[in-house]
Design a protein around this nucleic acid. Structure first.
Length: 574
RNA sequence: UGUCUCAUGGUGUAACGGUAGCACAACUGGUUUUGGUCCAGUUUGUCCGGGUUCGAAUCCUGGUGAGACAACCA
């Protein structure tokens, strides 16, 4: 299936979410309308797991032509910041999705939620509890034993109304009182044991500032927010499954208390299994820990599984969307192999990234029969996968650099590269023969001497000769020095967060970042193309991998991040 | 000693009572001026037991295993 087909929504839609929505549509629910939402809490940066959810929600919204709301679930002022709001909007846009109208906020509905809470109190379905968090927790019971009633459970409606208003007016300190729903302390579902609806938090909120000092809990906010917006399908991850009865209970109560709401579309929560990737961590808490402990450079460190990290690493939005499609959706727990992500970016960049020449661990080669001072400009195609990308020229001179690992003294016959007495092709230039090497006192090779065969220039008849190896190279005099950052997985363990008695940081890979400063790139690399729609410049360094220009790069000192290496069947053979 | 959810190759995901397919990974071979790409091919699977049925991955039942739930987080 082509990438175009995926982007044009031509894929057969077989996942269970489509099936559930189709069922609702067939039953004539919601007048055939579908509206989804993506509801992040602005307390951290989005990661690849959110990308799956974004692709799912916006993909469904687009597919059924109903659209998707972006809603910030901002009911906890102590954790939420506008920095996160901004980064989330940037990431969603970069991934290629548009939300309906302006972004919305749960805090937009604080007054409505408060009014509904009052309605529930009046209906005898909610009460103010004066106990501490510890006392309430102690009464809650356990999953296998029922809870006990709060001594405040049967307060009069008048007293509850009065106390709740005084909570709102700021007459109490944090934690002194809460509003709880009156449901069933013996329910086998812990979430139905008189769950908290409101708590007191005297804190500055990033939007409502100091207007409120009581804030609704997730359960008393999310379903109603969906309902207010006319969301038809509220798609979330599996851990919210146990919340679904409560999600429905609150909606039932407000509709019963205010019957005109009965006419509105009823939102439905459906859960799916979240994305897990091996060799990384995927919780905002752990990612924040890496940032705060300066284990990584920040949320957008190219080793992070965040969307901003993947962007800085060089991943394209298209590759992430294809990835989200390939991993599928289901309700069973899953751990996706990172090799699938890597496959997706290689597939995309193979088609789109121009090929340029760069040597990242250089050793000097002198072509002894090539005239000193002469420069021969060779033509090189920018992308063998796409002729329309054109070509550019690169300078061939007497002194060039090749990759140190492309030479081996006394190499086995399986080594298709340079050794004394052997011929190799310098791609887009000439066939050369290695005549000798010079070493320093440590035995390190300082120079390789070759002769070239003038009849074997690329494109000439004589170049059709079979030669075992083809190497990349750059001219010593013309190439530009660059810095290259190569990344490896951040963790050495497949499931760093999966060990009960060990901290995930115990499995950090000490070699996850390798910075190389003695690297050289052909002078005209910018003529090869490489400018992508998102403004990021991406290239294939011939025979090495895909690289992109880092945000800290300057014209004088280019810095490249390695997105992913090329597949390498030689290193496996070794 | 609770409630809910889940179980298909190494990893994901299809098959909706009628030939277990696809992708990634792995491995062969071919092409190749990237040990890339591309092409052809190979290996590997329905958790276990019983039942219903002409026929079960699918329906029923009993096990087993995994996950979620006891935040004034979302």
């Amino acid at each position: 299936m082509s990438k175009e087909a995926i982007e044009n929504n031509e894929l057969p839609k077989t996942n269970f979410l489509h099936q559930e929505i189709d069922k609702d549509l067939q039953q004539g629910k919601n007048n055939g309308k579908v509206l989804t939402r993506f509801p992040p809490e602005p307390n951290g940066y989005l990661h690849i797991g959110h990308a799956k959810s974004i692709c799912l929600n916006f993909g469904l919204g687009n597919f059924y032509k109903g659209g998707t709301n972006l809603r910030f679930d901002d009911t906890n002022p102590t954790k939420e910041e506008t920095e996160y709001v901004d980064s989330i909007m940037e990431d969603v846009k970069w991934l290629g999705f548009d939300w309906v109208g302006e972004p919305v906020y749960t805090s937009d509905y604080f007054q409505q939620l408060y009014d509904w809470a009052v309605l529930l109190i009046k209906a005898g379905k909610a009460y103010v509890d004066d106990q501490s968090a510890d006392e309430i927790a102690a009464q809650k019971g356990t999953p296998t034993t029922p809870g006990q009633h709060s001594p405040y459970r049967d307060r009069s409606i008048e007293e509850n109304l009065n106390l709740f208003e005084r909570m709102k007016n700021g007459e109490f300190k944090n934690g002194e009182r809460v509003l709880r729903a009156k449901i069933d302390m013996a329910s086998p579902n812990m979430h139905m044991r008189d769950p908290l609806m409101y708590r007191i938090i005297h804190a500055h909120h990033h939007r409502t500032e100091n207007e409120w000092c009581i804030y609704p809990m997730y359960d008393f906010a999310h379903g109603q927010s969906d309902f207010i917006e006319g969301i038809t399908h509220s798609i979330c991850t599996l851990e919210f499954e146990v919340h679904r009865p409560l999600y429905n209970w609150f909606l039932d109560q407000i509709i019963e208390a205010d019957p005109k709401l009965k006419e509105l579309p009823r939102t439905r929560q459906i859960e799916f299994a979240r994305l897990n990737l091996n060799y990384t961590v995927m919780s905002k808490r752990r990612l924040l820990e890496l940032v705060e402990n300066k284990i990584v450079e920040g949320w957008d460190d190219p080793r992070m599984p965040t969307i901003s990290g993947l962007r800085r690493r060089g991943y394209t939005p298209e590759s992430i969307r294809v990835f989200a499609d390939k991993v599928g959706v289901a309700r069973r727990e899953n751990i996706i192999d990172v090799s699938l992500l890597e496959h997706c970016i290689r597939e995309d960049l193979n088609k789109r990234a121009p090929r340029v020449y760069a040597v990242i661990d250089p050793v000097k080669v002198v072509i002894t029969n090539f005239p000193e001072g002469e420069v021969e400009w060779m033509e090189a195609g920018n992308n063998p996968e796409d002729e329309s990308m054109g070509s550019r020229t690169l300078p061939f001179t007497r002194e060039i650099y090749i990759e140190r690992e492309d030479f081996m003294e006394g190499a086995p016959s399986k080594f298709f590269r340079m050794d004394v007495g052997r011929e190799v092709r310098l791609k887009n230039a000439y066939i050369v023969k290695c005549e000798g090497i010079t070493k320093d006192e440590n035995g390190e090779i300082t120079e390789i001497q070759c002769t070239y065969d003038p009849d074997t220039k690329s494109g000439m008849e004589g170049s059709n000769r079979k030669v075992k190896g083809t190497l990349h190279w750059v001219s010593v005099d013309h190439s530009k020095q660059i810095t290259v950052k190569q990344y490896d997985r951040l963790f050495m363990d497949e499931a760093p967060a999966g060990h009960k008695d060990k901290d995930f940081k115990d499995f950090l890979n000490p070699d996850s970042l390798q910075q190389l400063n003695n690297c050289w790139i052909e002078p005209n690399f910018m003529d090869a193309g490489g400018e992508f729609e998102d403004g990021i410049k991406r290239f294939q360094f011939q025979r090495l991998g895909y690289f992109c220009l880092d945000k800290n790069s300057t014209e004088d000192h280019p810095i490249f991040n390695r997105t992913v290496s090329l597949k390498d069947s030689w290193s496996k053979q070794k």
